[in-house]
Nucleic acid binder design. Sequence first.
DNA 1: GCCATTTGCCTAAACCCTTTAGGAAGCAGC
DNA 2: GCTGCTTCCTAAAGGGTTTAGGCAAATGGC
Lengths: 189, 189
Amino acid sequence: MVRAGLSTERLVRAGAELADEVGFEQVTVSALARRFDVKVASLYSHLKNSQDLKTRIALLALEELADRAADALAGRAGKDALSAFADVYRDYAREHPGRYEAARFRLDPEAAAASAGGRHAQMTRAILRGYDLAEPDQTHAVRLLGSVFHGYVSLEAAGGFSHSAPDSQESWTRILDALDSLLRNWPTP
Amino acid sequence: MVRAGLSTERLVRAGAELADEVGFEQVTVSALARRFDVKVASLYSHLKNSQDLKTRIALLALEELADRAADALAGRAGKDALSAFADVYRDYAREHPGRYEAARFRLDPEAAAASAGGRHAQMTRAILRGYDLAEPDQTHAVRLLGSVFHGYVSLEAAGGFSHSAPDSQESWTRILDALDSLLRNWPTP
DNA sequence: GCCATTTGCCTAAACCCTTTAGGAAGCAGC
DNA sequence: GCTGCTTCCTAAAGGGTTTAGGCAAATGGC
């Protein structure tokens, strides 16, 4: 009986791949066990339960996404930074749909606190330093950007913009232009 | 043996209520059977399968949402229409979280075509008549609005904006102001 | 009011996923 | 080569999905 060499690390990584292949919803402990050609119960030495697996995949995705975003942001400012940051989200979602779904997985407060969520918020604020927004407008703008990025990417993933003109890439570009313009001319009531 | 008086109609309606109570993910044929105090297999006379149930709940939610939006839009234009329309989405999601999740359920192309999805798109376009946008910018704007509304509401539902100042209502108001301003000053490249 | 047909709900059973308990074999350090 | 920890296993219970086949309640024609 040769051992499979499982570890939490390997399982989570394989789970993320599985998510990209079949969708995050379909990631099950059973499917993962099949992938390692191992009995289901064996995974429970490395994973607390199914929820634990999903949480860990979500944390992995958030971390990867934050790393990419940090990379993209380095040395950029203003519209340049805005576009680069937005593209990171969109590209990640297209390359890794399952992981992206995972990143949207509702974490319990404890996991959320330990997640890269804070880095994401910090980076969004960093982008806004290129625009002239004081609080509380800066926070409103952070929320707007988060909404647009997440909303667009998830509608696109759901197929909302395919099979109709103009193509999605064009809308994306023009929406980023529009957001840049909006941030430069943020209305005061 | 008294009959329970099941029907597809009643099951879907009860399924929608169940979704609001426990979340759309937790809506199962079994849970629904328990609610009617009936054996699980009995539901399969009225429902093709679990997917069918979820699809029908999604269609119901989309229909309700479109009805409310149509109501809100009647007699309004410009910013007034924009705000009323946006509030319909947000309020519906807060009143009926499970149904709102359902409305975001990925439908198969056939169901999507038969859904109220088209009405939603039409209404968004109607709002933009109050602004001066020619194609293809109108389509870009439709996509932007859809992204913001969906994105904001779903981040809010995930608890993203709670427990931090300024409160969500204020951001929402200011974001609608910002969108109105953006639509009135849509940048041309 | 009776009977035949339709319909609605049931039992039974197969299959899959989750999770826990307890056991045996691999591997490391001495 | 023994000791003990870890890894993986078998077994079993519990829940959800789905199909097949059966009996009883409702319905409508006479």
